[in-house]
Every structure is written in structure tokens, then in C-alpha cells.
Write a protein that binds this DNA or RNA. Structure first.
Length: 259
DNA sequence: CATTACCTGCAA
DNA sequence: TTGCAGGTAATG
């Protein structure tokens, strides 16, 4: 679930909820590591970093079904994998139905040795047109697969990839080497527009993702193409198609998005 | 390159 | 009962 917008929203909303407060770190098999002050919260790709008494780090990756919530002491259901007491009487919980999520804890240098961080490409929100063009250069394969690969650009997931490509009028199976300069320019502009639009609307709550305070995101109701197979394209009224591309469900308009 | 595995819940 | 879900690493 969480892609860049959802992780960005979690980070922004978690910052005032955690910064300056203390958090109780407990060992999985019992015994406390003690209370640590939170210095800040940061997003890196789709991971959330909670900076503790330097240089220690508590980090999370939501994968498909994870979310971080700040709840009343002891509140929650059986899908809570980790619970951290906060000095204001609340709990920070990592809720993860499908258990694919990743939790890291340790000195920052050690956490960042994980392959996920080592191979992460430049952030999608920060990438410049020149940088995007440069990374695309010399690559083969389908553009959607490129966008989903976190080693190329960090942050884009299956929903955002389809939304970006629809907005840029690029077919998801377009070979990278066939992209014209004008298309790369559109792709770059779309990438910024779609990600920022999703952040503004509070991210995508497709099934169960929520803001740390429990609010739903508003993007999914206002999406352009993802999950709208069989429906009409908002631009040209043609049918939205669904096809497995790069191993994932892909949605696109065959008329607006020519290969 | 494509496919599988990880895991649970829900809708068709 | 089957298929599918926001992701990624591992495997052919």
C-alpha cells in the first residue's frame, strides 16, 4: 500500500506527534532498552526514519499493508506487530495485517547498510528533469517497470505509476529507448503533479491505510485511472483497459496512451 | 526478462 | 473457492 504520498503524509503528521517526546524501546523477547528522545521523523523512499538519541535509528517499511498510528495506551487489535509507549501517555503502533513490513533498529550507519537503503535511487519528489533523462539514458525495458524499480527512482508504486503514465499520455509498455524528449518532459511534469496532488488530497486509502491519527486519505476517490478497468477515460471516454504489466495489475487508456 | 514467495482478509 | 490487494527479494 503505502507509496511515496502515504509515507510522506505519515512522516509529516508523525513529526509533531513524536518530536521532543520520549519513546520506550522494548526488546521483542522482554526487557527494556529504555526511554529515548525523538529528534525527528524523516522519509527515505518508502521508508520512515525515526531519529533517536543520535546516532540510533528506528525505521519502518510498510510494504503492502503496514501503517503507523498514534493511539490511546493499549488500544488496537491483533494486527499490531509493535507497540511503543510514548511519554505523553499514548502509544505508537505498527499495524501490519499481512506482516510484510520491515522494522529496523540500530545505529544509523548499520541500518543504512541494509540493501533497501543502499540501492535506493534519487527521490521522486526531488528529481530534476535532467536527472530523470540521465537515468533513463541507455536503459531498455518498459517504462512502467522502470518507474516501479526503486533503484531508478525512489517512491513510486503501482497506483502512482499508472496515474503518472495516464496523465503523461504514455502507454505503460512503451520501451524506454522509444520515448521522445517531449514525452520525457511530460513524464517528469506528470510525476511531480500526480505525487503532489496525492499528498494534497491526503494519499490513497484503497483498503485500510490511514493517517497516523486514523483519518482516511482522499486521493483514491479522485484517482484518474488506477482500478477503473472497464470504466471510461476521463479525457477521451474510451474504455480503460486492465493488463498485467511488470508483474502488476496495470490500468490505462488504449486511445490516450499509445505505445 | 517473468514468476514465485512472503501473509491475511475480503469480494466475486 | 478462487483471485486479488499499496512491495520487494529471491529464484528461474
Amino acid at each position: 500500500m503505502p507509496e511515496l504520498p502515504e509515507v510522506e503524509i505519515t512522516t509529516r503528521k508523525l513529526t509533531p506527534l513524536l518530536k521532543g517526546k520520549r519513546i520506550l524501546l522494548a526488546r521483542r523477547k522482554g526487557g527494556n532498552l529504555g526511554w529515548e528522545k525523538v529528534f525527528g521523523v524523516e522519509r527515505r523512499g518508502k521508508a520512515i526514519l525515526i531519529w533517536l538519541a543520535s546516532p540510533y535509528l528506528l525505521a519502518f517499511h510498510m510494504r503492502m499493508s503496514g501503517k503507523l498510528l498514534v493511539v490511546e495506551r493499549g488500544a488496537g487489535d491483533k494486527h499490531i506487530r509493535n507497540r511503543f509507549k510514548l511519554s505523553n501517555g499514548k502509544d505508537l503502533v505498527f499495524h501490519d495485517v499481512r506482516k510484510f513490513g520491515v522494522v529496523w533498529y540500530g545505529p544509523a550507519g548499520k541500518v543504512f547498510k541494509d540493501n533497501y537503503f543502499k540501492t535506493l535511487g534519487p527521490d521522486a519528489l526531488a528529481i530534476s528533469f535532467a536527472e530523470l533523462k540521465n537515468i533513463l539514458g541507455g536503459k531498455g525495458g518498459k517504462i512502467k517497470a522502470f518507474l516501479l524499480n526503486q533503484h531508478n527512482i525512489a517512491g513510486i508504486g503501482n497506483i502512482m505509476a499508472d496515474e503518472i503514465l495516464w496523465y503523461a499520455k504514455i502507454h505503460p509498455e512503451t520501451r524506454i529507448q522509444n520515448l521522445k524528449d517531449s514525452q520525457i518532459k511530460k513524464l517528469w511534469a506528470s510525476l511531480k503533479f500526480i505525487l503532489n496532488r496525492s499528498i494534497k488530497l491526503g494519499g490513497s486509502t484503497m483498503r485500510d491505510w490511514l493517517h497516523p491519527g486514523g483519518e482516511e486519505g482522499g486521493y483514491f476517490k479522485k484517482r484518474f485511472v488506477y482500478g477503473r478497468g472497464g470504466g471510461k477515460c476521463f479525457r477521451c471516454k474510451s474504455k480503460i483497459l486492465r493488463k498485467k504489466i511488470a508483474g502488476r495489475s496495470g490500468y490505462y487508456c488504449a486511445k490516450c496512451q499509445k505505445p
